[in-house]
């Protein structure tokens, strides 16, 4: 009985970090730019950009500007989009119009947790936008995580599109 209790304690209480936060934006930028984080810049959504992003999202964006960090041809973007009911925060690094990395920074949805893992986000590596402003390669989904997968794809498209506008 003692062994069962000990196993349960180790099993259920092994970690005590902030729920749903996998990397802070600061740590993401630190990693991306090797400790030399460039000054933050802002891109504003004019009428045209808002229209394009609304098409990506299938709803109007809740933001009117997007912050980004640029060093040469490398840019880093931090975006939020709701999956089913909670915002998912991702950090996206783009190098010369190709996604270099997509990292889930915060995930608080009760379903679809698979998208936070590298085995899923690796699919975005080297992806770009095609002439129809779609992702250049298909992203294989996860059953039961449709809305989370969809949110990540939308954010990748937005970052790639805005990077083209710089």
């Amino acid at each position: 009985m003692k062994r069962i209790l000990l196993f349960s304690a180790v099993f259920f209480f092994q970690t005590a970090i902030a729920k749903g936060v996998y990397q802070t934006p600061e740590a993401f930028l630190e990693t991306t730019f090797g400790g030399n984080i460039p000054t933050m810049s802002t891109i504003w959504l004019n009428k045209e950009k808002k229209k394009v992003i609304s098409e990506f999202l299938q709803h109007s964006p809740t933001f009117i500007r997007v912050k980004y960090w640029q060093q040469g041809s490398k840019t880093a973007w931090i975006l939020n989009e709701i999956g089913k009911s909670k915002p998912i925060t991702v950090g996206i690094v783009i190098e010369s119009s190709n996604v270099q990395q997509l990292k889930v920074l915060t995930f608080r949805e009760s379903r679809g947790w698979e998208v936070k893992h590298d085995f899923f986000t690796r699919q975005f590596d080297n992806i770009t936008l095609d002439e129809n402003q779609q992702l250049s390669s298909p992203i294989d989904g996860i059953s039961g995580a449709t809305l989370s997968v969809r949110a990540l794809k939308k954010m990748a498209r937005i970052a790639l599109y805005l990077e083209q506008q710089l």
């Binding site: 259920f12 209480f13 092994q14 005590a16 009760s110 059953s143 039961g144 449709t146």
Partner: peptide, 26 residues
């Protein structure tokens, strides 16, 4: 009601869909 025990494990109590099949939960 879901009670997060830690980052990996969540306890659940109440009335819920059983984890069987593809469409029962989704």
């Amino acid at each position: 009601i879901d009670f997060d025990l830690n980052e990996q494990h969540t306890a659940r109590a109440g009335l819920f869909l059983l984890p069987v099949g593809i469409i029962n939960e989704t």
